[in-house]
Design a binder for these strands. Sequence first.
DNA 1: GTCTATATACAGATAGAC
DNA 2: GTCTATCTGTATATAGAC
Lengths: 186, 186
Amino acid sequence: MTNKRKELKKVAIDAVQRSGLQNLSFRTLADQVGVKSSSVHYYFPEKADLAASLIESYTDSFVEMLNAIDKKQLSLSDTIDAFIKIFEDVVKAKKFCLCGMMAAEVAMLNDANRSLLSNYFKILENWLSVHFENHKDQIDSAYSPETLAQIVLSGLEGAILLDRVENGQVRLNAQRKLIKVLINNG
Amino acid sequence: MTNKRKELKKVAIDAVQRSGLQNLSFRTLADQVGVKSSSVHYYFPEKADLAASLIESYTDSFVEMLNAIDKKQLSLSDTIDAFIKIFEDVVKAKKFCLCGMMAAEVAMLNDANRSLLSNYFKILENWLSVHFENHKDQIDSAYSPETLAQIVLSGLEGAILLDRVENGQVRLNAQRKLIKVLINNG
DNA sequence: GTCTATATACAGATAGAC
DNA sequence: GTCTATCTGTATATAGAC
């Protein structure tokens, strides 16, 4: 992949995490990278192509972070803490999850991009689910690993969405507290 | 308030819940109500005025629903079920919470509208919090009423955001399960 | 690959007639 | 209150030169 293409994607992802895909134009994206909008169209013919590329890149980056966590062989508690920290970093950067943002904009996405979005959430839930399954003795027996994964992910997404409004992290901390209790009630 | 103004707000709220404020134009709004865009500007000079009016109306409607629930004098469990049902109805209508949607679009809002958004979330959390406080013996003692309210609201918002993508309600059901356990662990 | 130039559509907003 | 008409800016997208 060329450097310009990489740079465009990096800048675009940042922009979408701040103000959404709808608010990102080929012009402003081009300006930020120092090219013309027609050059952006060279890499991404239509906006849907750009969107697809962003979701894929964002998913790949996230998976890399998850692999890095796995490599450390931490306890379940520390593993989930590391997962939560990814969301905390997003809040601190005054951003929202790229896929959470696009989930809000789902009405404007085509079917292919909806599938890519769905895939992202399922990958995260699956990663959580596997960890819960592997330490089933440590999670609250009231929930299956799958259900707990859904609770954790949707809780974190909702928390950083609401916290954005006040530029704080009270809901994120509330979710952190919840998760802490849920994985020590085994 | 005039009928046209009321009608414009109703149509606009529905549109924002589906595709966001950014995607709502004076033109399309006018078309749906059968007037010209300049007439919409008569009622709402700037788009920020429209946004403010929508948040206020949506908040008022929600408070009315909460009051209706209170009037029934239900058990804590049934009260919270009724609260969850409001979110379920939103999912079933293939919509998202108007304020959750605008929270994603917060970068494009002015300070006044951010305050209105913040106010909405606090009203909902406060309502939940009061109910938890009034039945403190029925809630999991690991959480304060305030923290539990934050957990519940952010969890539900995140759930209906993610469920939108697949047009399902698995995360909503997961959150429902969680909440059921949390308010019977007293 | 990157550019200039342009087509076409639509956005928010306002002036002024009725 | 609602309209016509219009201004100005910006959006996505493409053709074609270099």
